[in-house]
Simulated assay, not measured.
Amino acid sequence: MQARHIDHVNLRIPADGVDDAREFYGEKLDFGIEDTLYAADEKPFFDVRLSATAVIHCRPTEEFEPPTATSYDHVAVVVEESLDEIESELYSAGVEIEKRLDSPLGATGEAPAVYVEDPFGYQIELKARV
């Protein structure tokens, strides 16, 4: 079997966290939000579009429990911008940078990255292209 890429990541969010997710991922990080089928009650989650081939499913649930240090670490997303541009965009959007690493290793090699936390406690790594 030959893997090509990760298709999606499924994150559970609080049932009342839909607006917070749309604001954080859609407005602050400027990723596309695809929620037509969710709004029509045709599927139990909506998508954060990262690229043509990758999404984050946000699944609202009453049983949500915030991630812990032993249950989750982070999702890494490679973005087109340089680290300086990433930091500038996050600052302008009012998103606090948790940490910055100059050369974390990823699937495509080492590249600078910053880490932010979404409204539900999930850490997101925003990594410049190698």
Rank of each mutant, 00 (worst) to 15 (best):
V48I: 14
A111Q: 11
L29V: 08
G106C: 00
E42Q: 14
A52L: 12
A52P: 06
A40R: 15
P119A: 03
G94S: 07
A107P: 05
Y122I: 08
D41I: 00
E98M: 12
E42W: 12
A15N: 06
K28G: 05
S88I: 00
Y122T: 10
E80Y: 02
A113L: 13
V75M: 07
H74M: 09
L37Q: 10
A39P: 01
E23N: 10
G121H: 06
E98P: 01
I6C: 09
D19T: 05
Y72H: 09
G106D: 01
E81S: 11
E34C: 00
F45G: 03
Y38S: 11
L101V: 11
C58N: 07
Y72N: 04
G26I: 06
V78A: 08
F45V: 09
D16N: 15
Y72C: 02
F45L: 05
D35A: 14
L11R: 01
F24Q: 03
L90S: 05
V18Q: 04
F31K: 03
V77F: 12
P66L: 01
R22G: 05
Q123D: 01
R100L: 06
E63L: 00
G26D: 09
E85C: 10
I56D: 09
S92D: 15
A76I: 06
S103N: 07
G26C: 06
P66D: 00
E34T: 00
F24S: 01
A113D: 15
E96F: 01
T61C: 02
V78Y: 14
Y38A: 07
G17L: 13
A111C: 09
D47G: 04
T36Y: 11
E62L: 00
S51L: 09
E27G: 01
L105E: 10
L101Q: 14
A107G: 11
P67V: 03
R59V: 14
P104Q: 05
V48P: 05
D20Y: 00
T68M: 04
G26R: 10
L11N: 04
L105A: 06
D84M: 04
I97T: 14
A69I: 03
P14A: 01
G121T: 07
I33Q: 06
V48F: 03
R22T: 03
G94H: 13
E27P: 02
T108N: 07
H8S: 03
E96H: 04
H57P: 05
V55N: 15
I6W: 03
I33H: 09
K99D: 04
E63Y: 00
